[in-house]
């Protein structure tokens, strides 16, 4: 029965192989800080090539979830697989191997304050993939252009940049090694509406052109409707729903109802509808 055999092979290949559909798999995640339980038996999948947004109220543990996935927060229980590898079980070398296949942008960019933007972007390259200096310079300039920063910001220091520019520079540094997964922690918080809209566009462009999987933590409803393929809603220590933004908006969970059918949710959806009509 060659047919069934190949289908079994395919099946195992899909689950564990490098081309598995899920680039991130979280199973039964439990996070506690003292007596306070942040996550309880949390499951979440992120598929290759999608933009997945995690939303939830303040203090719902969105950032903690991101930190558990990238290994900055040791979970109390549960399993996190990234690119088919359980990072807690992996050897240090394997871990480093996986870690350089993702890029992380922290909330305020987390640029190294003693280095200018160009040097910040070159840090991961110099450490992990040394190339000729002029090529590294050009790659770094290319990333600066890709994230939409003006060329003269290359020699500026983080304290000389505005909040939005620091975030863009943070993305440029995250993209330095051409990662497969991009983690973004609240990319649009603290930005003016125009800047936030520009950021949403940037995420879509980068995802399309660089073939990225994007995991973003946000509470900006506009970004959810403009740039996300799927939305995971994190309420009461669980992921209560994962679906496309349009279907999440129709979901029956009380928190989702309040959030999406409140005045801000309606206006965000209305804006999206208008844009779609225009297109």
């Amino acid at each position: 029965m060659p047919c069934s055999l190949s289908s079994i092979c395919n099946w195992t290949f899909e689950v564990t192989g490098p081309d598995a559909q899920n680039v991130i798999e979280v199973r039964g995640l439990v996070n506690r800080f003292g007596a306070q339980v942040v996550h309880e038996n949390l499951d979440l999948d992120v598929r290759r090539g999608e933009v997945l947004a995690v939303i939830g109220g303040s203090g719902a543990g969105k950032s903690v979830l991101l930190r558990s996935i990238i290994g900055l927060q040791e979970p109390a229980q549960g399993q996190v697989q990234v690119l088919g590898e359980d990072l807690r079980a992996a050897s240090a070398a394997r871990r480093a191997e996986i870690e350089r296949r993702w890029g992380v942008m922290f909330q305020d960019g987390a640029l190294f304050s003693s280095l200018n933007v160009l040097e910040n972007i070159k840090v991961p390259m110099i450490e992990h993939q040394p190339l000729p200096l002029d090529l590294m310079d050009e790659i770094a300039r290319l990333k600066i252009a890709l994230v939409g920063l003006p060329a003269d910001s290359a020699h500026k220091y983080p304290s000389q940049l505005s909040g939005g520019m620091r975030k863009r520079a943070g993305i440029a540094r995250a993209l330095s090694l051409d990662p497969e997964i991009l983690f973004l922690d609240e990319p649009t918080s603290g930005l003016d509406p125009l800047g936030a809209a520009g950021f949403d566009e940037l995420i879509v462009t980068l995802k399309k052109s660089l073939d990225l999987t994007v995991f973003l933590v946000t509470h900006d409803l506009d970004s959810i409707f403009t740039c996300c393929d799927r939305v995971a809603v994190l309420v009461d220590r669980h992921v209560v729903a994962v679906d496309t933004p349009a279907r999440i908006a129709e979901h029956d969970h009380p928190w989702i109802k309040q959030c999406f059918r409140g005045p801000r949710g309606r206006s965000a959806q209305g804006a999206l509808a208008l844009r779609l009509q225009g297109a």
Binding site: E138, R141, L142, A145, L146, A151, A154, H155, S209, D211
Partner: peptide, 20 residues
């Protein structure tokens, strides 16, 4: 998809380098 990426990179990398 490769051609699209090449076009994007050509466009982005052609921005004039600020003299420093």
């Amino acid at each position: 998809e490769h051609l699209a990426l090449l076009n994007l990179i050509a466009e982005a990398a052609s921005t004039p380098v600020s003299p420093h």
